[in-house]
Write a protein that binds this DNA or RNA. Structure first.
Length: 435
RNA sequence: GGGGGGAUACCAAAGUGGCCAACUGGGACAGACUGUAAAUCUGUUGUCUUCGGACUUCGCAGGUUCGAAUCCUGCUCCCCCCA
């Protein structure tokens, strides 16, 4: 059981994760003794996504350094909607929905933080709290008398998150969203009183909310507490990291498959790779710098991206899932698909590839390639299918079909009942033979 | 209320009796190149086909004609100007 703290501030600095800090002696303060730190997460969906990863990993780093992290899910604040970074008023979610989201998020967090053992910190395991538990206890009147009295409105309206909305007469801001900051600020006070929490972490867009909490803690409790923000994870083109065509990149394997999760990181632009390695992995400084050099000398090997993708996939989905993803990647971007003894392996590798049923009798008498493509729904019509074949874009088991009149037979089965069809570079479909 | 213009394929936009399954651009899809990148280049882009062609499509419904996206009548919707 290690009770000592390691120099996390130094680590955060070389990772360039310190954006703003309320104290210039943060480093030594963190070395004095284990501290309790918290970061908040809004339960806006039933899964965390890549946008949550950075602060979550921050908490993980603090835990590994000997501090005690508190992950706060905003069952109360999330029901209000944070105006920070939002140009428009948000729709309120139902409390039932939020409750369900909290349950799901809690499960995901327990994969990254240790909520059970005291191995990491003398202060004990990580904590998971829901601010709905204490904020819902307040009556409106109590809240105004105890909390609101300590908050000057002129300070609130000078915060960027509020100011931006006030200056835009078209959208404005509701009293509800305006109050968000107050609730979040009170969270810090509550956590300080209840758990001795002294530091709030957040993305740089949370600076206003963080400092609001610090001010409130001083006024209400006379407590000196601290705040620190990390940079936002953005791409070099200015857009958000973790955005896919289908929306967010989720941590839930059912919403974003491990394969797609892996591929996202595998395809990170060179310019963004170093930032991702520093922000999102726990690789050593030596290794990160080594990968930086490799990217200069032999970018085509994509060593950084592969390391990043493997590290994150293993962290989020586990070693077994990573292994399958590796196999799938090899096949999807590699050569031919050989014969598989059983359907199981192919099934797992092509788990998310759409499949269609095909009567065994049709295969026995030979199936024209164009018909097969239509059956597999890879093309909308036979005309389109023929065109694809002529263009050289049709593949059976990753072997290109040269002839428009090619027939598919039982000899093309890759496993006892499956044939792998492909249109173009990576549009796969399975044909499953049924009696 | 009066006057004018328009509706064409996924989107934009030509076509104003046969040469129109319909110019062109974008998108999309394939291919080449490449680092599973970006850019670039090439091709394809209604359905079916025994590859000869057949069939459906230019807002909707009728009509004229040997023949209509194109002309006529009615209907629906959209835009602009004036009041």
């Amino acid at each position: 059981m290690s009770q000592k703290v390691t120099d996390i501030y130094n680590e955060l600095q070389w990772r360039q994760l310190v954006y703003q800090s309320t104290s210039d002696r943060m480093g030594s303060w963190l070395l004095e003794r284990p501290r309790t730190v918290y970061a908040g997460f809004d339960p806006t969906s039933d899964s965390l996504h890549v946008g949550h990863l950075l602060p979550l990993l921050m908490l993980r780093r603090f835990q590994k350094a000997g501090h005690r992290p508190i992950a706060l899910v905003g069952g109360a604040t999330g029901s209000i909607g944070d105006p920070s970074g939002k140009s428009q008023e948000r729709n309120l979610q139902s409390l039932d929905q939020i409750e369900a989201n909290v349950v799901a998020i809690r499960r995901q967090m327990s994969e990254l933080l240790d909520f059970t053992s005291s191995d990491h910190s003398a202060l004990g395991p990580a904590l998971l709290v829901n601010n709905y538990d204490w904020i819902s206890q307040f009556s409106y009147l109590d809240f105004l008398r105890d909390v609101g009295k300590n908050v000057p409105v002129n300070v609130m309206i000078s915060k960027d998150s509020v100011k931006n909305r006030l200056e835009n007469p078209d959208v404005g801001i509701s009293y509800t969203e305006f109050s968000y900051m107050l609730l979040q600020a009170y969270d810090f006070v509550h956590l300080n009183r209840t758990y001795g929490c002294e530091l709030q972490l957040g993305g740089s867009d949370q600076w206003g909310n963080v400092t609001a909490g610090i001010d409130l803690a001083r006024r209400m409790a006379g407590a000196e507490v601290f705040g620190m923000t990390c940079p936002l994870l953005t791409k070099s083109d200015g857009t958000k990291m973790g955005k896919t065509e289908g929306g967010a990149l989720w941590l839930d394997g059912k919403k974003t498959s491990p394969y797609h999760f892996y591929q996202y990181w595998r395809n990170v632009a060179d310019e963004d790779a170093s930032k991702c390695l520093r922000f999102l992995t726990e690789l050593s400084q030596e290794e990160v710098e080594h990968l930086d050099r490799c990217r200069q000398t032999e970018p085509e090997r994509a060593a950084s991206q592969i390391r990043l993708a493997e590290w994150l996939t293993e962290l989020i989905h586990g070693a077994a899932a990573l292994n399958l993803v590796r196999q799938a990647t090899e096949i999807f971007f590699g050569g031919e698909i050989g014969k598989f003894e059983s359907d199981d392996d192919l099934n797992q590798i092509f788990a998310e590839v759409p499949s269609s049923r095909l009567a065994a009798s049709r295969l026995a008498e030979g199936l024209a390639i164009a018909d097969a493509l239509v059956e597999a729904k890879l093309t909308k019509s036979k005309g389109e299918a023929r065109r694809v074949v002529v263009e050289g874009g049709a593949y059976v088991n990753n072997r290109r079909i040269e002839s428009e009149t090619h027939q598919i037979t039982t000899a093309d089965l890759s496993s006892p009942t499956m044939i792998v069809l492909r249109r173009g570079k990576k549009n796969y479909a399975l044909l499953r033979v049924v009696e």
